[in-house]
């Protein structure tokens, strides 16, 4: 029998007040935290501040062309949102391939970000959507672009007493994709992932934003490849050059999930597949 100590706030103020104390830690879906909780914290387990009761943090809100997601919105809710399917296709694609049904029904967008894993599947889509995070604590609120949030694997700028309270971005009216490679289709962590957002006008590609997951200490953008592609007609030559360029921009390591060379090679493959409109096999 496994028992943790919990605190169950029902308002955001109460939650932030609690998080301002010692040896406490917020828990959202728990699908990542509870897996390694004992291994990481041993006998001095922090008290868990259960966020489920904070109803407003579960909402998906739209104001004109801006969408804001509460941090407790689950992967399943993203996957099944007709609005997000149109307004953030790459985010929906990422949410629908991560974990399993059971995990997606509990795992949250806020948890995926706060974990700070370079392989977190929702993060590359949020990079190419230029998402903005709102961080709150008893001392007030601050806003930070997603690409300034991560410092390294598992390391973020989130202070101990802070919560991510919203994730917002402009609806994209452009094209987007998210593709990943993992050991199996379900329940596997990405070895490599590529997300993009771009426009096609008269056969040429513009406004290109590309982000790579699991090939650097944090999710990264691929600025040289973006610049190269911008204004080009998408033909085999252009795609091959772009694939070569993006391999140079990836900085992968070899670890338990894959080796560096394979990851670097696959970044190029996934970019080509994505721009050719080949979907993720599910």
């Amino acid at each position: 029998m496994t028992k943790y100590k919990t605190i169950n706030p029902t308002t955001l103020d109460e939650a932030l007040e609690t998080l301002n104390g010692c040896n406490v830690m917020p828990i959202a879906g728990g699908t990542d935290l509870l897996v390694k909780f004992y291994e990481v914290y041993g006998k001095s387990l922090p008290k868990l501040v259960v966020l489920d009761g904070l109803i407003p943090l579960h909402e998906i809100k739209t104001e004109n062309d801006r969408i804001s997601l509460g941090p407790l919105v689950t992967f399943s809710e993203i996957e099944n949102s007709p609005e997000l399917r149109k307004a953030a296709p790459q985010l929906v694609q990422a949410a629908s391939v991560a974990g399993s049904v059971q995990i997606r029904n509990r795992a949250t967008i806020g948890g995926n970000i706060a974990n700070g894993s370079p392989s977190g599947d929702l993060i590359p889509p949020l990079y190419v959507l230029n998402a903005e995070l709102e961080l709150s604590s008893v001392n007030g609120r601050r806003s930070i672009p997603i690409d300034k949030f991560f410092k390294g694997p598992g390391i973020t700028v989130l202070e101990k007493n802070e919560l991510i309270t919203s994730i917002s971005f402009d609806k994209t009216f452009e094209n987007g994709f998210f593709l990943r490679l993992a050991t199996r289709k379900a329940l596997a962590i990405s070895k490599v992932s590529v997300a993009a957002n771009y426009s096609m006008q008269n056969g040429t590609i513009t406004n290109v934003r590309i982000a790579l997951g699991a090939v650097a200490p944090t999710v990264i953008r691929a600025p040289r490849t973006e610049e190269y592609l911008s204004g080009k007609e998408l033909n085999d030559n252009v795609l091959s050059t772009a694939a070569k360029l993006i391999k140079e921009e990836a900085k992968p390591i070899s670890d338990i999930r894959s080796i560096a060379d394979y990851r670097r090679e696959m970044v190029g493959v996934l970019l080509k597949r994505g721009l050719n409109g080949i979907p993720q096999s599910e």
Binding site: Y4, T6, T31, L34, V35, L48, V50, Q102, N105, R106
Partner: peptide, 8 residues
Amino acid sequence: PVCSCLIL
């Protein structure tokens, strides 16, 4: 469906 081992 959810995993009851990961819910409090």
